[in-house]
C-alpha cells in the first residue's frame, strides 16, 4: 500500500479533536471523497479521537493518505497508552459506555467506515485504525 503522506496529530485536549476533524476533512477532500463520504469518515474520526482522549488519557493520530494505482484512500491510526479495554466485544456494542457518552462511540464509528481495526491490551493501551478507499 504506497503511502503518499503521513501526519502525526496530537490528541491532548478537546480542541485537538477539532484539529483532527479539520485535518481529516482536508485529506478526504484531497482524495476526492464525496460530501457524504467525507462527513461519515470525519464523524468516525471525531468519535474515536474523543475516545482516545477520554478513555485513553490522550494520545495521537497518524493521518495517512494512500494512492494505489487508481485507488485513493485515507487511513488514520489512533494510539493511546491508557488503561486499555478488557472486553472489546462489549465495548463495541451500542449503548456500552464507561464515560459520559451515549455509548455510540466505537460501535457507531465502525458502521461509518469501510475498514475498522482495534487492538487493546489492558495496562498498555489501545490502537484503533480506520480507513476508507475511494
Amino acid at each position: 500500500m504506497p503511502l503518499s503522506k503521513r501526519d502525526l496529530l496530537p490528541i491532548r485536549a478537546e480542541t485537538d479533536i477539532v484539529m483532527v476533524r479539520q485535518a481529516v476533512r482536508k485529506a478526504c477532500i484531497e482524495q476526492g471523497f464525496s460530501l457524504v463520504e467525507q462527513t461519515k469518515f470525519v464523524t468516525a474520526a471525531s468519535e474515536i479521537a474523543r475516545n482516545t482522549l477520554e478513555y485513553g488519557g490522550g494520545g495521537e493520530a497518524a493521518l495517512e493518505t494512500h494512492i494505489e494505482g487508481v485507488r485513493k484512500g485515507v487511513r488514520i491510526v489512533f494510539t493511546d497508552q491508557g488503561p486499555g479495554i478488557a472486553d472489546l466485544e462489549q465495548a463495541m456494542r451500542d449503548g456500552f459506555t464507561t464515560g459520559g457518552g451515549m455509548g455510540h462511540g466505537l460501535g457507531g464509528a465502525k458502521r461509518l467506515v469501510e475498514h475498522f481495526e482495534i487492538t487493546s491490551t489492558p495496562g498498555v493501551g489501545t490502537t484503533v485504525a480506520i480507513a476508507r478507499w475511494k
Partner: peptide, 14 residues
C-alpha cells in the same frame, strides 16, 4: 441539518 450530516447521524445510530 445538512443531508450528509443527517445520513451520517442515522448511520451512527443517533
Amino acid at each position: 441539518m445538512q443531508p450528509a450530516v443527517a445520513i451520517t447521524l442515522v448511520e451512527l445510530g443517533l
